[in-house]
């Protein structure tokens, strides 16, 4: 790249970029950044590691139950429905989700949501995204949708991995619901997906909290830890009898309330109440995140 060849090169680049029509007259909607966000998120090794760890949870449960099944003298200490698994493999997915909701899912969602802005800041890419330019509002929206997409993927991974291992290790058949009715195998898959949808919605508030924390710092680990700790604290408070007045407002209040989806007919009350609560958290923390981020000096 000497001076002479550079000049020659420059002119060829110039003419070809004109032919390439690199710039449009009116701005596009900006979906390209969302596509890029989702693709970068799901190409990251860390994302895959977390999804694999989540997939391992129902597998470990199923294996443990399968291996102790032949030894009925030790009933174990797990939840009551653990023993159901041996009768019907379709219960493995539900069991896996119940086990993951209190900690594993909030942990992984906290990592992704806490990383949204702070991770870009610490990598030095935030300033380049903003001068590209991605407007701050658009970047926040894209980041939030990315975290929500991860919540959905994480929940589905547990449900699917649980269903597959259940089918592989145990007999399957019609499922008896909590209301006593019996549904077929196909219908039980639909119910599993409904439960996964319920849990995904449950994680939307936490994702918004993580997004807000992420705008406060340039240290992603700090935002991740704060998000995860808050998820644990919220669940602890939800179990203190002295705080009954507060509990309906805690974002984790309905996390395990998907039992209504396992009745015939389905009772949608808790799904609706959960959606409204999560929507409120989303609005509040998205507004806080925008309030903080829109006026923040990017010095990272």
């Amino acid at each position: 790249m000497t001076s002479d060849t550079e000049t020659a090169h420059a002119s060829t680049v110039d003419s070809s970029t004109t032919v390439l029509a690199s710039v449009r007259a009116r701005p596009a909607v900006g979906w390209a950044l969302l596509g890029s966000e989702i693709s970068v998120l799901f190409r990251r090794k860390r994302t895959w590691a977390m999804l694999l760890a989540l997939a391992a949870v129902p597998i470990l449960i199923a294996l443990a139950v399968r291996l102790t099944e032949s030894n009925p003298t030790s009933p174990g200490r797990g939840p009551a429905f653990l023993s159901q698994i041996t009768n019907n493999g379709l219960f493995v997915a539900a069991t896996g989700l119940v086990v993951c909701v209190p900690l594993f899912l909030p942990l992984t969602v906290g990592v992704v949501a806490g990383d949204t802005i702070a991770g870009e800041a610490s990598a030095g890419t935030l300033r380049y995204l903003l001068i590209a330019p991605a407007s701050r509002l658009r970047l926040l929206a894209v980041k939030y949708i990315g975290a929500a997409a991860f919540s959905l993927a994480a929940t589905l991974v547990v449900a699917i991995s649980g269903t597959l291992i259940g089918i592989a290790l145990f007999p399957i058949g019609p499922v008896t619901l909590l209301s006593g009715d019996t549904i077929g195998v196909g219908e039980s898959f639909v119910r599993s997906l409904l439960v996964a949808a319920f849990i995904t919605v449950s994680l939307l508030g936490l994702s918004a909290i993580g997004l807000f924390f992420s705008t406060l710092t340039d240290v992603p680990v700090g935002a991740m830890a704060a998000t995860i700790v808050l998820a644990v604290v919220s669940q602890v408070l939800d179990n203190l009898p002295q705080l009954v007045w507060l509990q309906p407002y805690l974002f984790s209040h309905y996390w395990l309330s998907f039992a209504d989806l396992l009745r015939q007919p389905i009772a949608w009350d808790s799904f609706g109440a959960n959606a409204i609560l999560q929507g409120a958290y989303l609005l509040i923390f998205a507004a806080l995140a925008y309030g903080r981020f829109s006026s923040k000096d990017i010095l990272s």
Binding site: V23, S36, V40, T125, P133
Partner: peptide
């Protein structure tokens, strides 16, 4: 410079270019 270490040079530029709403995909 500030880049995603786990992406290639090409991948990084694709990412940043996609943030520009005026750039033609």
């Amino acid at each position: 410079p500030g880049f995603y270490p786990y992406l290639s040079g090409t991948g990084n530029l694709h990412r940043l270019d996609s943030a520009d709403r005026y750039a033609i995909g």
